[in-house]
Write a protein that binds this DNA or RNA. Structure first.
Length: 514
RNA sequence: GCCCCAUUCGUCUAGAGGCCUAGGACGUGGCCCUCUCAAGGCCAAAACACGGGUUCGAAUCCCGUAUGGGGCACCA
C-alpha cells in the first residue's frame, strides 16, 4: 500500500473476456423507480442479454435513515412492468445471494476489518461536531473541504485515548479508507476512455459507518466481486468516486470489472438532472413525472417507454428510432453507440412514440385489453363488445391510454351529459337554424332501418343541401348533440355504436335544450 | 472554491480526416386529405460553441477559452 505506484492505471480485468458477462442494476429502494434508473437498468440488461450473460438485481438498502418497507415491492413492480427481467435477485434468488445488502452486513464488516488489519483502512473516532469544525476552519482558510485525516496519523497511544473518549461519549467509530496521498489514478472507462484523478485531492472516505452498515463504496466493491460482475454500467455521478473504488479493488487484490459511466438525463430544459424533489416542467408548466409509476398511471406503454429511454444516450443507428426490445438487444453488442454527453429529457418525443406504439404496434384486441383497466379505474362499467367497437376509433386519436376517457368515455357512461347549448351552434348558425337542423335530422335518422355508418352518412348527406349547410356545420352539430362533446370519435361511427334509440333520444334532448 | 465529464438544428441523435451542399427523428410552420380531433401524405425553416494549431484536406485529431452538467456526506 505504502509503495503504491505513482500512477495506477486501472482497466477492467482481462479475465472477464473468458467469463460470462454479468451485469447488475443496484438501486436503493426509496420509492418507485426513477426513470433514469430504469434507463440504466435497461442498458445493463441489454448488454447482458446480447452476450447471453446474466443480469442481476441487487438492492442497496444500507441507508437506514431512508428505509421504506414498501419500496422494494414498488421497485420490483416497476421493473417487471418494464419487462426488465433479472436472472438473480429478490424474488428469484440465485447462487450469489443474498441480493439485499442489509442481509450481507457481516460480510462488509469482516472485509472492513480485513482492510484495517492490512493497513488499507483505519478507525476514525472523530465526532461529527469535530468534522464540522474542521470543515469550518478549512473554509475560512479557503481550503477544499474534507476530513483532515487526524486518526490516520495518530500514534497508538493517542489512538487508544481517542477510542476511550469516543466510547465515553457513547459514540461508535467509523472506518475510513487510506487513500494514497500522492500519485495519479487513471480509470479506463468504456465510454470515456482514460479518466485521471490526482490522488492528493481525494478524501479518506468512510467505508463503514458507525451503525455497522457499509457505505456505498465498500458494499459495491464487495458485492460486485462476490457476485462476479463483469461490467458495471452506472451513471456519471459515480465517476468522481471511481478512484476510491479502484483502490478498493486494488487493496482487496480482486479482479476489477469493466466500468462504463453513463450520461445522465437532465431536465427538459437541460438545467439540472431530473429529480423527484424538484420535478421538471414542460413549456406549459405541467409537471413532468420522474418516477416509473407516474408513467404507468398516465397510460404509457412499457414497450414505448423502454424504446424511448434506450434512445436517450444510445442510438440504434440506421436512422431508426422505433425498434423492439429484441432488436435493441441484438444491437447492444458494446459501448460504442453510447453517447458520453448528458441529454435533456424530451417529453414530446415520448408522447409521439407512445402514439406510434398505440396505433402501429398494437392490434385492436390488444389495445382494447389495455384500455379496459383504464376505463374501469375511472369507475366505468366496460361492455367488451362496445369496447371492441370503440377501440379502432380511438386508436389513431390517443397518445396515452388515459386519453380514452376524455375522447370516448361517454360510451361507457350510463347517464348522458349533454353539451352546453352554445356548443351545439355551429359557425354561422343560430338557435333557430340549429334547432331546425336537429329536428330535420332526427326525422331522417328515424327512418334509417339499418343503423350503420354508411347508411347514416348516406341518409344525412342530402340534408346539407336541403338545409343550406356544409358538412362541417351539419355533421359537427350532430356530433355535439350525440356525444356531448366537441372533440370525439367520428360522428356516424359513434351513432352506429350507440344505436338508434340512444341517438334519437340525444337529438331530442339537444333540440329541447335550445 | 476545487476536481471530473461533456459540447452537431429548440430537443433526441447520425457522423470514427475527404462520402458533409452535415443525414434521421420529435417539435414548429405551410399545403393536401377531412364531419371535430387525430392519423396519413408532401414541403419548409433550423446545428458542427469560439479561437488557435496538426494536415493537401477537420464536425471528426491536439491545445486553450467559453458554456453546460456532474461530484466534493457516517445518501446512494
Amino acid at each position: 500500500m505504502t509503495d503504491a505506484p505513482a500512477t495506477l492505471v486501472a482497466t477492467g480485468s482481462d479475465v472477464w473476456a473468458d467469463r460470462p458477462v454479468r451485469t447488475r442494476f443496484a438501486p436503493s429502494p426509496t420509492g418507485s423507480l426513477h426513470i433514469g434508473g430504469l434507463r440504466t437498468a435497461l442498458f445493463n440488461w441489454l448488454y447482458a442479454r446480447n452476450h447471453g450473460g446474466q443480469f442481476i438485481l441487487r438492492i442497496e438498502d444500507t441507508d437506514q435513515k431512508r428505509f421504506d418497507p414498501t419500496a422494494l415491492q414498488t421497485l420490483v413492480e416497476a421493473m417487471r412492468w418494464a419487462g426488465v427481467t433479472w436472472d438473480e435477485g429478490p424474488e428469484v434468488g440465485g447462487e450469489y445471494g443474498p441480493y439485499v445488502q442489509s442481509e450481507r452486513l457481516e460480510m462488509y464488516q469482516s472485509w472492513g476489518k480485513w482492510l484495517v488489519e492490512n493497513d488499507y483502512a483505519y478507525t476514525c473516532y472523530c465526532s461529527s461536531e469535530r468534522l464540522e469544525q474542521v470543515n469550518k476552519e478549512k473554509q475560512a482558510r479557503k481550503e477544499a473541504p474534507g476530513y483532515d485525516r487526524r486518526c490516520r496519523f495518530v500514534t497508538e497511544d493517542e489512538r487508544q485515548k481517542l477510542a476511550a473518549e469516543c466510547a465515553a461519549e457513547g459514540r461508535k467509530p467509523v472506518i475510513r479508507f487510506k487513500f494514497p496521498l500522492e500519485g495519479t489514478t487513471v480509470l479506463n472507462d468504456l465510454v470515456r476512455g482514460e479518466v485521471s484523478f490526482e490522488n492528493k485531492i481525494q478524501q479518506d472516505s468512510v467505508i463503514l459507518k458507525s451503525d455497522g452498515f457499509p457505505t456505498y463504496h465498500l458494499a459495491v466493491v464487495i458485492d460486485d466481486h462476490f457476485m462476479q460482475i463483469s461490467h458495471v454500467m452506472r451513471a456519471v455521478e459515480w465517476l468522481p468516486s471511481a478512484p476510491l473504488h479502484v483502490h478498493l479493488w486494488q487493496a482487496f487484490g480482486w479482479e476489477m470489472p469493466h466500468y462504463a459511466h453513463l450520461p445522465v438525463m437532465l431536465n427538459p430544459n437541460g438545467k439540472g438532472k431530473m429529480s423527484k424533489r424538484n420535478p421538471p416542467k414542460d413549456k406549459f408548466g405541467n409537471v413532468i413525472p420522474v418516477m416509473v409509476h407516474d408513467y404507468i398511471r398516465s397510460g404509457y406503454l412499457p414497450e414505448a417507454l423502454d424504446n424511448f429511454l434506450i434512445n436517450i444516450g444510445w442510438s440504434y443507428g440506421e436512422d431508426r428510432e422505433v425498434f423492439s426490445l429484441e432488436e435493441a438487444i441484438e444491437r447492444f453488442t458494446d459501448f460504442s453507440r453510447i453517447n458520453p454527453a448528458n441529454s435533456a429529457f424530451p417529453p414530446e418525443k415520448l408522447d409521439w412514440l407512445n402514439g406510434v406504439y398505440i396505433r402501429e404496434k398494437l392490434s385492436v384486441e390488444e389495445l382494447a385489453r389495455r384500455l379496459r383497466p383504464v376505463l374501469e379505474n375511472e369507475g366505468y362499467e366496460v361492455n367488451v363488445d362496445t369496447l371492441l367497437k370503440v377501440t379502432p376509433l380511438v386508436q389513431t386519436r390517443i397518445k396515452t391510454l388515459n386519453e380514452v376517457i376524455s375522447i370516448a368515455g361517454f360510451f361507457f357512461r350510463e347517464e348522458f351529459i349533454p353539451a352546453k347549448p352554445e356548443e351545439l351552434i355551429q359557425k354561422k348558425m343560430d338557435t333557430t337554424t340549429t334547432k331546425q337542423a336537429l329536428e330535420r335530422s332526427r326525422q331522417v335518422l328515424e327512418g334509417v332501418a339499418d343503423f350503420t355508418t354508411q347508411a347514416l352518412h348516406d341518409a344525412t348527406q342530402p340534408l346539407t343541401a336541403e338545409l343550406g349547410l356544409n358538412n362541417s356545420q351539419l355533421f359537427g352539430l350532430l356530433r355535439v348533440a350525440v356525444t356531448g362533446q366537441t372533440v370525439s370519435t367520428p360522428t356516424f361511427e359513434t351513432m352506429e355504436i350507440l344505436g338508434k334509440d340512444k341517438t334519437l333520444k340525444r337529438l331530442d334532448l339537444a333540440a329541447s335544450l335550445l
